[in-house]
Simulated scan of single mutants.
Amino acid sequence: MNNQITYTQFVLFCKVHAQGLRENIHAYISINDAPKLLSIELSFLQLFSEQKVDLLQENYDSDINIWLQSQKDVLTIEELSLFRYIFEQSIFALLIQNKNTEFSAFTFFLSDLFIRLSSCYNHFHQTVTQEHSPSHHDKKTQQLIALNAFSACLIAATDATSSLPALLHDAESIFSFKRCVFYAYNPWLNEYHGVYGAELMKVQSMRGKLADHTAVFSERKPIFLKDPTHYLPASAIELFQLSSIVFTPVCDKNKQLYGWLTFDQLSEEFDMTKDDLEVLAQAANLLAQFLGRKASSNVTTAVQLTEKEKIILTLLADGLNNKQMAELLFLSPHTIRDYIERLMHKLHAKNRTQVISTAFRLSLIT
């Protein structure tokens, strides 16, 4: 793939990385908030990931048309731009995760894909989608877009130690706050301590027992203090020049607590709605998932496959023979045979059938 990719190459990409794309889509959408949109995204991915590559036609208008026929009554025009945004970001996030630099090729293909999809949609509904750009979404949709943007930052991040300062800066920009600070929780000492945030020396000077601030730290949901005078030490309020502040616990679905995020506007007083607090709660939950994933990321699979080996493995599982794979990938049958031999060696398999069964058992293909 250089400046452009073909429909067949895009389908292969979706087939090889179907599981990763599903995980990225889930990371962009909270199923409790948008179950319908999630099912539509996964259905659209399935359109590509379950194709038989040896039966593909490069003109994919009919594939889009058939899929849209099944979705046109559930995918509203208000959701169309957001649907595109989430699907594209899930693709781009996977490219980042796999250190794939072919953004321009995928951008060009996805642009063409969604132009065709929009054209089909307009044909069905006889309306113009341009009037419904993301800037015209209601506040709830704008909040979801903000969460998607924060998810993208988390997905692209490397490790927690080096990425957290930048992620806090991203959170300030995305959620429109002037300061975001992370306080870590030490369960053995039942203490909190400042880790990262603007004016680092001040942040890291903050340390104490949870028992001293029970009202703030005991809740497992965001707390908005419009006037923190009666809840925080006067020394902390003076140190950070606080007028209002939000405390948001960073805990995952299993209630494991990693710490707290605080958001404020420096010395300016501000207000928060219930929906605003819910958005920050979801952002903190995403951060907890990130911290949890990175904590366990040292455990790597014993089988490491190259991108080309993953493609060959996927085509093997689809039942293609060496000649068909060679024609599809513009390689010689001899090269295909070499790839299969490498797969047999890496998977300790005696034949092609064992390669496929072992790959399924190790979840290398789904």
Results as ranks from 00 to 15, higher is better:
residue 126 Q to I: 07
residue 361 R to D: 13
residue 97 Q to E: 15
residue 196 Y to R: 10
residue 311 I to S: 10
residue 105 A to R: 00
residue 255 K to P: 00
residue 271 D to G: 01
residue 59 N to H: 12
residue 96 I to V: 09
residue 157 A to H: 15
residue 162 S to R: 11
residue 307 E to C: 04
residue 143 Q to R: 07
residue 26 H to F: 11
residue 365 I to Q: 05
residue 233 P to M: 00
residue 324 Q to C: 02
residue 251 C to S: 14
residue 72 K to C: 12
residue 341 E to G: 01
residue 270 F to P: 00
residue 245 I to W: 01
residue 334 H to S: 15
residue 314 T to H: 03
residue 101 T to Y: 06
residue 315 L to C: 09
residue 366 T to S: 12
residue 43 S to N: 07
residue 330 F to G: 09
residue 361 R to E: 14
residue 346 K to P: 02
residue 294 K to M: 09
residue 194 G to A: 14
residue 286 L to H: 10
residue 316 L to P: 05
residue 53 V to E: 00
residue 98 N to I: 00
residue 41 E to A: 11
residue 49 S to K: 09
residue 225 L to G: 07
residue 251 C to I: 12
residue 146 A to N: 13
residue 197 G to M: 01
residue 330 F to V: 15
residue 281 A to S: 13
residue 139 K to R: 14
residue 116 R to A: 10
residue 261 L to C: 04
residue 43 S to R: 11
residue 280 L to F: 03
residue 243 S to L: 03
residue 66 I to L: 06
residue 198 A to L: 08
residue 269 E to M: 05
residue 275 D to W: 04
residue 253 K to D: 15
residue 136 H to P: 00
residue 159 D to I: 07
residue 20 G to Y: 03
residue 44 F to H: 13
residue 180 C to D: 03
residue 194 G to N: 08
residue 78 E to S: 07
residue 67 W to N: 14
residue 323 K to R: 12
residue 50 E to V: 03
residue 58 E to Y: 03
residue 199 E to H: 04
residue 125 H to S: 05
residue 362 L to A: 08
residue 283 A to H: 04
residue 126 Q to A: 14
residue 103 F to A: 04
residue 173 S to I: 06
residue 92 F to W: 08
residue 187 P to R: 04
residue 310 K to A: 13
residue 67 W to A: 11
residue 352 R to E: 08
residue 272 M to Y: 05
residue 73 D to H: 14
residue 357 S to P: 02
residue 45 L to R: 00
residue 48 F to V: 13
residue 205 S to T: 13
residue 248 T to C: 15
residue 339 Y to M: 06
residue 181 V to N: 01
residue 209 K to C: 04
residue 53 V to H: 00
residue 256 Q to A: 02
residue 146 A to F: 01
residue 302 A to P: 00
residue 294 K to Y: 02
residue 164 L to E: 09
residue 87 F to V: 10
residue 99 K to C: 06
residue 327 E to C: 05
residue 200 L to A: 07
residue 344 M to T: 03
residue 205 S to E: 02
residue 125 H to Q: 14
residue 24 N to S: 10
residue 215 A to H: 10
residue 45 L to N: 05
residue 61 D to W: 06
residue 158 T to K: 14
residue 35 P to H: 03
residue 117 L to S: 04
residue 100 N to G: 07
residue 339 Y to Q: 12
residue 290 F to W: 06
residue 69 Q to E: 10
residue 95 L to N: 11
residue 115 I to K: 14
residue 149 A to Y: 02
residue 257 L to G: 05
residue 43 S to H: 13
residue 54 D to T: 06
residue 151 S to G: 06
residue 35 P to D: 09
residue 28 Y to R: 06
residue 125 H to F: 13
residue 328 L to N: 10
residue 49 S to P: 02
residue 3 N to Q: 10
residue 212 D to M: 07
residue 300 T to C: 06
residue 176 S to Y: 05
residue 355 V to T: 01
residue 283 A to G: 09
residue 88 E to P: 00
residue 214 T to M: 13
residue 165 P to C: 05
residue 178 K to N: 12
residue 60 Y to W: 02
residue 287 L to I: 05
residue 240 F to R: 08
residue 39 S to F: 10
residue 240 F to Y: 10
